[in-house]
Design a protein around this nucleic acid. Structure first.
Lengths: 201, 201
DNA sequence: TATATATTGTACATGTATGTACATTACTTG
DNA sequence: CAAGTAATGTACATACATGTACAATATATA
């Protein structure tokens, strides 16, 4: 019972995600967000509580749009390393293609907020942990023959994460696909993830 | 002739640098900065014109504090690759040591501003170009025997820049030196920059 | 159809933020 | 020491921003 919402929460979270994505969290005031949603600030507070709690909701939603998510789709029975490379390649395409140079919302937010926002730092940090854990799992699965030890897997996973972050930032000023991808491929190849046989261009 | 400034411009730029560094550019209002400097906003505008122009001044000043600057100090006659590794190692130390998790001002600002601030995007992007050019030069100088071609040098330089960016961001949530450095070392080693003989721990 | 209730809107009090016009101050040079 | 000038301060007009109290609205259920 009670009155119906004048807006779809799903759509709202989605458009707020895009706003924060392109403008940064700190640049999104309750006023601006409310106006974009076509509701009053009063309704905003009633529905979402605060910008922080809305952002946490956005963050969960973002995951399915994130470069990280693609790692979850990888079939562990297939050629894992090749699929990892494909994910990286797709990220290069996405970064070069995006005219707004938005980059990755999660990475952007980490830089913007971790260390300064006590409420949002924990969820952001733990989001990264998830990715790191996932990468370790993939590397271990791909590792049946190579036999890296636990520490080496961890190092390599973090190296891949660093590369992921690097690309997402470089994409802000490097708009040439060939340049971005070829250096990414070089890094992947060096780390033993890319194989010349893959022949990706 | 005329009245003396009540503050040292040098000190002012320096403290504004640290404020922006720890809080982010967008979080530093003219009001807050003026109050920190102990001057009125009126004086601020008179002395600096705008936050944007002050930031450009800060950016120049930052360079000598930046991880990038260390590359300029490298003696091209010595063991260039080893010195590059030392720079990376020092960055790992700096990131892990910094309790505020500030990261690199330049990288932070790129993520925060490139693509959204039309005035500050160009100086930020060109700052990166300087670093990339410097890295290419170092790699070429270290390359006398290896004979990489132009493209390969460019790829490797960008790979190093990506690594640099990755570390600076990872340092926000990874506070264990061993973890950060060992994965960085792995990346450097993979790229043929680190040599097991260096024996850096 | 009446009523409970979730949603929305209005209004308020308060603080922050920006940029400028104009007056004041203090110092330097002739 | 007088005059010119750079630096500073005051005041204003305007807009943005936050969070809440209270009233109005719409709808599902009884």
């Amino acid at each position: 019972m009670g009155r119906n919402k004048a807006f779809s929460r799903d759509q709202a979270v989605d458009s707020v995600m895009h706003l924060i994505w392109s403008q940064g969290y700190q640049n999104c005031s309750v006023k601006a967000v409310s106006e974009m949603l076509g509701i009053t600030r009063s309704s905003f507070y009633h529905s979402f509580g605060s910008m922080e709690s809305l952002f946490i909701e956005v963050l969960k939603r973002y995951y399915v749009h994130s470069p990280f998510c693609a790692f979850d789709q990888i079939n562990e029975q297939g050629d894992i390393l090749k699929e990892i490379c494909t994910v990286f390649q797709n990220i290069c395409v996405a970064r070069v293609t995006d005219k707004e140079a938005k980059g990755c919302l999660m990475i952007n937010s980490i830089i913007e907020l971790v260390g300064s926002n006590d409420i949002l730092s924990p969820p952001l940090s733990s989001s990264v942990d998830v990715v790191l854990t996932r990468l370790k799992r993939l590397l271990n699965a791909a590792n049946m023959q190579e036999k890296l030890n636990e520490k080496e897997v961890e190092q390599k996973a973090l190296a891949l994460l660093n590369l992921l972050i690097g690309i997402n930032v470089s994409g802000k000023f490097i708009k040439d696909y060939e340049q971005l991808w070829s250096s990414t491929r070089l890094s992947l190849q060096s780390l033993g993830v890319y194989n010349a046989d893959y022949n990706m261009t």
